[in-house]
Nucleic acid binder design. Sequence first.
DNA 1: GAGCACTGC
Length: 700
Amino acid sequence: MAAPLSTMKFWKPGSEGPGVSEERELTTETTGSPVIYNPHVSLSVEKQRQKLPIFKHRNHILYLVESYQTVVIVGETGCGKSTQIPQYLLEAGWAAEGKVIGVTQPRRVAATSVANRVAEERGALLGHEVGYTIRFDDCSDPRATRIKFLTDGMLVREMMADPLLKKYSVLMLDEAHERTLYTDIAIGLLKKIQKKRRDLRLIVASATLDAKKFQEFFNLNESGDPNKDTCGILTVEGRTFPVDVFYTVSPVPDYVKATVETVLKIHETEDDGDVLAFLTGQEEVEKVVTMLVEQARALSRFGVKKHLRVLPMYASLPYAEQMKIFERVPPTVRKVVVATNIAETSITINGIVFVIDCAFVKLRAYNPRTTIESLVVTPISKASASQRAGRGGRNRSGKCFRLYTEEDFEKLPAATVPEMQRTNLAPVILQLKALGIDNVLRFSFLSPPPAQSMVQALELLYALGGLDQFGRLTDPMGVRMAEFPLSPMFAKMLLESGNFGCSKEIVTIAAMMQIQNVFLVPPNQKKAAAKEHRKFAVAEGDHLTMLNVYEAFIKHQKGSQWCQEHFLNYKGLLRATTVREQLRRLMNKFKVPRTSSEGDPDVILRCIVSGFFANAARMHHSGSYRTLRDDRELYIHPNSVLFGEKPPKWVVFNEVIQTAKYYMRDVTAVESSWLVELAPHFYKQAQHGSLSSSKRAKVI
DNA sequence: GAGCACTGC
């Protein structure tokens, strides 16, 4: 019963690996502006800074920023661009006269941690000369902060108050190649701003692949004379260690099993070094962990000296479990982290030498015709594959085992489809309208979304009353909806809650719905967790259940111990209190009356309907649900408190997600008469008493 | 009885 060790066969192609980029470099004279040293900073910090690969491009970068409105910088991993470029700009005087150098990041942690590093390098207290701004946490001083790090979503929000971003002299969009929704929105808006503000400089930090696309997008020169180009490109080499890439000799029938076998093969044949394996979801991760733990036990029985420490990693794993992957292990132990895509960009684990890549990822897709989102296991892109491989070369040279053939690798798409093209656009359109983009169909998108997604978004916003029949933002409804950091349906529900007499409860419900995994289910305590969770459940559905959870949390003084006993997500609930506070402030701003339903559930449910009437379904005699709009088959999601209970006849839901079936998430029972009453433009009562719907408010 | 990749305002 020895483990099936070396069944995996890999080979290494001639010359793979992170090579040197061949991107065109501009060869221009440098300006030679002097390096200004900060007297508060020790010389050793300066020496460290000068050792970074980007340092020798310092003057060239400053020259390019001086000469071009936009500079695309292809900065490879470890070149120091995120921390150094803002400082070079500061030293060269770009923050004079109260101007600010802004640097955006797609993720909150990146914004705060880079800000920290730069403040440290400058010997400054975070929040003064160097600061950051993310949602719920503004660590910057409008008078003192010269370098400001912020999330790209925050930058878009700032445009609502200051459409030309006048306080910034330079903006650097870091990690632009990730093409997150907000990076893409910011990119389109910045192009527009640049036409009005010729003095605003833009630096787009990107990977090699997309540099040309960015350059063409931002080049405002239409003369054909390259001397008049407004956008330049510069490539800066990185500092990473080589990673040898291996492919399987033949296609792998089952990448879960292959992952297990490859880990064992590495353990058996390779030198020291931790392993990181990529899989697509929680279920696969847990399966591989279980199988490996079993094998590890067998190995230790056979007297193999070196032990395996196998750890899962995915977003919904409880926080304490997640932290284990960062713990150091003794030299006699090899750490194996089995992770979802969270390990591709969001977290970095030190000490990883070996990477196993299954070639797949779970991605969100959006169908504008049905307005249904789905999670689909999709082949990764080449860019993703090299990002995964690079996770093995952070501290020393590494090896990446790809569980697919080189031939299949060649067939992968170059880059992942940008989020803008696979999402529900209603929130995006609402924001653009609020920013004064009247004709969103003609907005300069870096990658235009499908026209049908736009049309669907406009229809929904019209039905919610956020846009008028001409597609113009309504005032006050549309204007106010756009200010909420939530999807338009939630915003509508909140703004109506004063009229329904339940704004206190609705704010709580909206806040709770922003938290993922309120109920924790540890794999080994499923029964106990379900028993605790049932205590909060009510027959009306998930919305009121969440209200119960939140009110109990407050009643028990926001206790972490109490949360643990009831298998509730403590950090999530704390976050709900902050989200709630922010929403409450917005409600005050718009003078939504503070009212309470005083225990009457119906007013709350009716208020939910006023925002979510478009997401309604009725019980079908087949036993499944059908959407009211287009008679599509739906099921209650197994995580809903209504799952397995006596099904209500009519429900509304927050969203539908397609995995194995079409599942409604966050479901609440309603009365059909409420739908007709609260959304008469959307539904009408047919003569025989049943409810039907119409796309354009027709009445029978 | 069957299941949620990951961010962000």
